[in-house]
């Protein structure tokens, strides 16, 4: 495998397809990234999924059911994309269940009020879009194509979240309070979704060279901040950052210092919900073992019967 030729190829917008030759490092990096993305989608069902049965109107309930269903679908496409690289969904799930692969730290925060559902749509899906739109041009074809479909749905989720937040922000004093408190809880964790500053992000340079990553973490974070601060102002909510200001020269918003020690704590497994999220995922998987075994046994029995008949 000529690595230089490969790098030259992915630099000129050529797409890599499953049967193409690729460097082992490229394959490994992609499998890990796609798997962790898939894990984030399915763990991400939990904080919002917890509110489906309590949604305050039937319309909001239907919107939320559809959203959580979309996230399960995103998980499915992404595990399939990883499988085109030779990975196996069950093995990837095992890596998640045993803590050897991660998912986005954002889902280790609790969603304790209805406004958190709105804030997750607005901020978390919003940040996911900023992160993921460049991935629609990723050098690996199946991942790029999965991202096109996923990004369409995420932007729908973002708009619904913002709209739900707007209703709360314009609602009763209790609803406004709920909305502000949700912004207070989710703002900083949402900024952390873009990962550490590029100087502290060891894999960034190689991923850039391989066309897996197109923009730096800081560039993407800036894009999110610039898009989101005016939205918060429009809603009449206060971004919980006393140092936030608009740089008149560049037009960019400058935020205060992100508390990266909090990020490290959550990453290490000591966020408010790390244990709960993983335990729930593992329990669902274990409780469903007999169902998956039954489906496999049935399929095997009937495949054998068909073979005899033929």
């Amino acid at each position: 495998m000529d690595e230089q030729a490969f790098t030259a190829r992915v630099t000129g917008d050529d797409r890599v397809e499953p049967r193409d030759e690729m460097p082992d490092g490229y394959r490994r990096t992609l499998v890990r990234q796609i798997a962790q993305h898939a894990h984030s989608e399915i763990i991400g069902m939990q904080p919002e999924g917890n509110w489906i049965t309590r949604a305050p109107s039937l319309r909001r309930k239907a919107i939320l059911v559809a959203k959580v269903q979309d996230e399960a679908g995103h998980g499915l496409y992404l595990y399939s994309a990883a499988e085109t690289l030779g990975a196996d969904r069950d093995e990837l799930l095992d890596l998640l269940h045993t803590g050897r692969q991660k998912y986005s730290t954002i889902f280790n925060y609790p969603a304790t009020s209805w406004a958190d559902v709105a804030a997750i749509g607005w901020l978390v899906d919003g940040a996911a879009i900023v992160n993921q739109v460049p991935l629609t041009r990723c050098s690996y074809g199946p991942y790029a194509r999965a991202m096109v479909r996923i990004c369409k749905e995420e932007s729908f989720h973002q708009r619904q979240g913002f709209e739900a937040m707007a209703v709360l922000a314009a609602g009763s004093p209790a609803q406004r309070r709920m909305a502000q408190e949700a912004l207070d809880r989710w703002w900083w964790p949402a900024l952390m979704m873009f990962g550490p500053s590029d100087v502290d992000s060891p894999n960034s340079a190689q991923s850039m060279a391989w066309g897996i990553k197109r923009f730096s973490n800081d560039e993407l974070r800036q894009r999110f901040v610039d898009a989101t601060v005016p939205q918060a102002e429009f809603l009449g909510l206060v971004v919980p950052d006393p140092d936030l200001r608009r740089d008149e020269e560049t037009g960019h918003y400058r935020t205060g210092q992100i508390d990266w020690s909090e990020f490290a704590t959550v990453m290490r497994g000591d966020g408010p919900c790390n244990r709960e999220r993983l335990a729930r995922r593992v329990a669902a998987h274990d409780d469903g073992g007999w169902v998956r075994e039954a489906a496999a046994a049935y399929a095997a029995k009937h495949a054998a019967a068909r073979a005899v008949a033929a």
Partner: peptide, 10 residues
């Protein structure tokens, strides 16, 4: 939701 035996069932 998020408790089913496999992702397809969710």
């Amino acid at each position: 939701a998020a408790r089913s035996p496999q992702l397809e069932e969710d």
